[in-house]
Simulated assay, not measured.
Amino acid sequence: MAVLRICTFNLHGTQENDDTRFSRIAEILSGLKPDLCALQEVIVEGNKTTAEMLAELLEEGTGKEYYSYFVETHLFYEKYSEGVAVISRHPFRGEWAVDLNEIPIPPLLPRKAAVVKRP
């Protein structure tokens, strides 16, 4: 029987110790060997998302390729694009966003979900 390892992790936006923090997060995730990891509070720094940065660190640590998909939900303190993301050891066959504000009981802040389809 095949095992699919899934986890979720809140990246807590940006912090002063991001270099150390993301290296440690990648180390922990490498030990878990997730096939798929859902991420919250992902931000855009420069031309990359923190999900892409984490995927690169995972590649360095494991020697395996990782793919990422980011969905922006709002501006963090009117400074950074923030949202959710998925990283995976498997390429995606499809990816899209679901607007959760269309649900009859809307959340307090704009929210979306990242959806991916893998082979």
Rank of each mutant, 00 (worst) to 15 (best):
D19I: 08
T49S: 15
G46W: 12
F9S: 04
A97P: 03
S30G: 09
A38N: 08
C37Q: 05
S30K: 04
Y77F: 08
S23K: 03
G46K: 12
V44D: 02
Q40H: 07
T20L: 12
T50F: 04
Y69T: 06
I25D: 08
T20M: 08
E72I: 12
R89F: 11
G94K: 11
S23Y: 05
F22Q: 05
E65K: 14
L29V: 10
K33D: 15
A85Y: 05
L58H: 09
W96G: 11
F22S: 02
H90E: 13
E82Q: 15
E56W: 03
E41G: 07
E16L: 12
F76K: 02
V71G: 06
R24G: 02
L58W: 12
G61E: 12
A26K: 01
V98W: 02
F92G: 00
C37A: 15
L32S: 03
E52K: 02
F70Y: 15
R89M: 14
K79Y: 06
A55Y: 08
Y67D: 09
D18A: 05
I28S: 02
Y80D: 03
K33R: 14
Q15N: 09
T49G: 11
S81N: 11
H90F: 14
A51S: 15
W96Y: 14
L39G: 12
H74G: 01
